Simulated scan of single mutants.
Amino acid sequence: MQRNRTTSRRWAGAVLATAAAIAVVLGPTSATAAPTTADEAADLVAQTGQELTQLDEQVHQAELTVTELQRVAADARAVAEAAEAEVARYEPQLIAIAHTGYTSGPTSGVAAFLTSDSAEDFVQQMTTLDMIAAHTDSLLVTVSAAREQAAAAQSQAQAAAAEAEAALATLEQQQAEVQARVDQYEADFTRLSAQERAAVTVSLAGPVLDVPTSLAPPPSEAAGAVVAAALAQVGDPYVWGASGPNGFDCSGLTQFAYAAAGVSLPHSSRAQAGMGVAVSRGELQPGDVVYFYSPVSHVGIYIGNGQMVHARTFGQPVAVTSVDMRGYAGARRIL
């Protein structure tokens, strides 16, 4: 039963950890004095845009948490079903033991002595009785353990399922709150002048560069597939929470591009920034994932020559820009 206790502790730990992680506090927007100048308004919009990228990442982390809770619940249900099947497997033997006890009555050492033809026969009968008793005891212990495991697994499954349902409800609420902030941000953004909108966009997402006509050679065929898939999406709209094929957010674009090389990435910039191996700015190669800010809330795909392609920010399409834009924090080589 040591394995059962270990499994229970592992499930309990997973449930507690993921339940804690889902408690993403978006909170109300901090109180800020109303802007009195156009520059202040532009700064406020830029600040809000940066906050939105962080909230976007929080929601993606919550989505991963919900998925993990659902996996824990499914695993627990599978173990419960296996344990219940194990109990059912022993049921015929339990019925046979009960039937024998009812029809034949208990067999004792005295009965064996009285029915034995010799001392040797007596010893043989006693040995047989001991074996039967040991088998019966072992079977009952096994069945009892299986029943305990089934009950524990069932309890774990119910707890994990309840946590998953609660986490999903919290996530849906958070998504609605972020969407409301996105709508407000886009409304504020459109009220800026063209020059102010351009300044805010460059501040948040770097300057737009032309798609290069020639690219640095990729280090591998897979890396080339990632770069080609990302560049093919240039001009597609930024869509919060989307991973293609017609709209993307930042980690959705990297996820989509890596899928072209047969690599599955989580839809989370923070999670992607923890994959593969770290590479320095001077070691960047086409196909590397570059990430921004602390905590990480934005990613792009390096394409060579100091450039990257990324799903930029709200209201702005996928574009090529300098990898050295504000907030650069590091890079990972996943392939």
Rank of each mutant, 00 (worst) to 15 (best):
L69M: 13
A83H: 00
G101A: 03
T65Y: 06
A83Q: 06
E91V: 03
A162R: 12
A160S: 12
L129I: 11
T67G: 14
A133W: 02
A96W: 05
V143I: 03
R89E: 15
S108V: 05
A157T: 04
G105T: 09
T142E: 12
V79S: 12
R77A: 13
E68Y: 05
D130W: 10
I132Y: 07
L139H: 00
P92F: 07
T128L: 13
V141M: 09
V123G: 06
A159V: 12
I95S: 01
A98E: 10
E148L: 07
E84I: 01
M126W: 07
A98D: 07
T100P: 04
T128I: 05
T107E: 13
E163G: 09
Q156D: 09
A119S: 09
R77E: 14
F122A: 09
I97Q: 07
P92G: 01
S104N: 14
A162F: 03
I95A: 08
T136P: 01
L139E: 01
E91H: 04
E81P: 02
Q93Y: 06
A76K: 02
A111F: 06
V123A: 15
E68I: 06
E165H: 12
F122T: 04
Q93C: 04
V143C: 02
A150V: 01
A162H: 10
E63R: 15
T127P: 06
V123P: 04
A152M: 11
S138Y: 05
P106M: 06
D130R: 15
A80M: 07
A85H: 03
Q93F: 06
A80Q: 05
Q70A: 15
A134C: 05
T136W: 03
A157V: 01
V79M: 10
A133Y: 05
T107N: 11
Q125P: 06
